Amino acid sequence: MESNATTNENLNLYEKAENYTKTSLELIKLKTVAASADVLSTLTSRIAVGAVVAFFTLFLNIGISLWIGKELGEYYYGFFIIALFYLIVAIVMHKSQHKLIKTPIGNMIVSSILKETKKDTNPDLN
């Protein structure tokens, strides 16, 4: 009789462990899907905003180039001046890319990851 009780307990324990494993895997899948959807939606919205800003910047630069060129007497002078301006900006950005670009973006990514980790480990934040 004890053998049957022990076997039933082992089966019950095995079923619970199996259910726990299946539930854990399902939870991991759902968290992965949620994280992927969040990343994709954020990326899509940022690309859309970036495209609008790029078009705005393009037309603004063309307008400024034409205006400067008109004031100087030849339209291509304005384009040369704007190109020189962007060359200077590119040189400054290249020289200070670590301080201006890499460090802030790295810090943002790390803080985002740590924020997600805190949410997962602290149920009060969910």
Rank of each mutant, 00 (worst) to 15 (best):
E2G: 08
E2P: 04
A5P: 03
T6Y: 02
T7S: 08
N8T: 06
N8L: 09
E9F: 09
N10D: 11
Y14P: 00
Y14E: 08
Y14M: 14
Y20S: 15
T23H: 06
S24D: 04
L25K: 08
L25Q: 07
I28L: 13
I28Q: 12
V33L: 15
A34L: 11
S36D: 06
A37N: 15
S41F: 07
T42M: 11
L43R: 04
T44Y: 07
T44S: 08
R46Y: 09
F55P: 01
F55S: 05
L58V: 07
L58T: 10
L58M: 04
F59T: 03
L60P: 00
N61I: 03
S65Q: 01
L66W: 05
L66M: 10
W67E: 04
I68R: 05
G69S: 02
E74R: 10
Y75V: 12
F80K: 05
F80G: 13
L84E: 04
F85S: 10
L87A: 14
V89E: 14
V89I: 15
V89M: 13
M93K: 14
H94A: 11
K95T: 12
K95D: 12
K95P: 00
S96D: 10
K99T: 05
I105M: 12
N107V: 01
M108P: 01
S112E: 10
I113G: 00
K115T: 04
T117P: 00
D120C: 04
T121M: 14
T121H: 09
P123T: 08
L125Y: 13
N126D: 08
N126H: 07
